Computed example of a mutant assay.
Amino acid sequence: MRFHTRKWIKPEDLNPNGTLFGGKLLAWIDEECALYSIIQLENSKCVTKYMSEINFQNSAKEGDIVEIGVEVIKFGKTSLTLKCEVRNKMTRSTIITIEKVIMVTLDENGKPKPHGKTKVEFVKDRLKDNKASIPRD
């Protein structure tokens, strides 16, 4: 699993118990999955269709740094199924794991749209392909 994003836990991220508010963490996860899907599927119109059971395993407190990891489980016709893990950067303890997040790509009318992708692609590889097709003088 690749961990792309880090978040620093600040006072505004806390619940009344002084630990990371679960709703804040879920918003970060949703955003990370959306960004990952938009980049993978090359479509800025991606929405969250489904999140499996959410089980908080550990908490985080003010000053902790957490990192959010995402990995592709499956490519569907219009969807991308991801797994997500959030862990404490310093202790490496898992805070939450979500086994299945399904993101769907949409057309201009908000309807599911086939994306034609079948494997993970890295932006650096797409850039190489684009350079090869640019005519040189």
Score class of each variant (00 low, 15 high):
S37R: 04
I39M: 05
Q40I: 03
Q40C: 00
Q40S: 01
Q40V: 01
Q40T: 03
L41P: 07
L41C: 05
E42Y: 05
E42Q: 10
N43E: 07
N43Q: 12
S44W: 12
S44M: 13
K45G: 13
K45A: 15
K45D: 14
V47L: 06
T48V: 06
T48M: 06
K49T: 08
K49S: 06
Y50R: 07
Y50N: 08
M51K: 04
M51E: 02
S52M: 02
S52Q: 03
E53C: 11
I54V: 14
N55V: 12
N55F: 10
N55G: 08
F56R: 06
F56P: 10
F56C: 06
F56M: 10
Q57G: 04
Q57C: 06
N58R: 10
S59H: 04
A60W: 00
K61Q: 11
E62I: 09
E62Y: 07
E62P: 05
E62N: 06
E62K: 06
G63H: 00
I65C: 10
V66T: 09
V66K: 01
E67P: 03
I68R: 02
G69T: 04
V70P: 01
V70M: 01
V70T: 03
E71A: 11
V72P: 14
V72C: 11
I73M: 03
K74Y: 01
K74M: 03
K74I: 04
F75Q: 00
G76K: 02
G76S: 05
K77W: 07
K77H: 11
T78G: 04
T78A: 07
S79D: 05
S79I: 06
L80S: 04
T81K: 02
T81R: 01
L82Y: 00
K83H: 11
K83L: 07
K83E: 09
R87C: 07
N88C: 14
M90Y: 14
M90R: 15
T91Y: 10
T91W: 08
T91I: 15
T91R: 10
S93R: 15
S93N: 15
S93E: 15
S93C: 14
T94R: 13
T97M: 09
I98E: 01
I98W: 01
E99F: 12
E99Y: 12
E99C: 12
E99T: 13
K100A: 05
K100F: 03
V101D: 00
V101Q: 00
V101L: 04
I102L: 07
I102H: 05
V104D: 02
T105M: 14
T105Y: 08
N109V: 14
N109D: 15
N109K: 15
G110W: 05
G110D: 11
G110I: 12
G110M: 08
K111V: 14
K113G: 10
H115V: 00
G116Y: 07
G116N: 14
K117Y: 07
T118R: 12
T118Y: 08
K119Q: 08
K119Y: 10
E121V: 12
F122V: 05
K124R: 14
K124H: 14
D125H: 03
D125T: 02
R126F: 01
L127F: 11
K128H: 11
K128V: 10
D129N: 10
D129M: 08
K131H: 15
K131A: 15
K131T: 14
K131M: 15
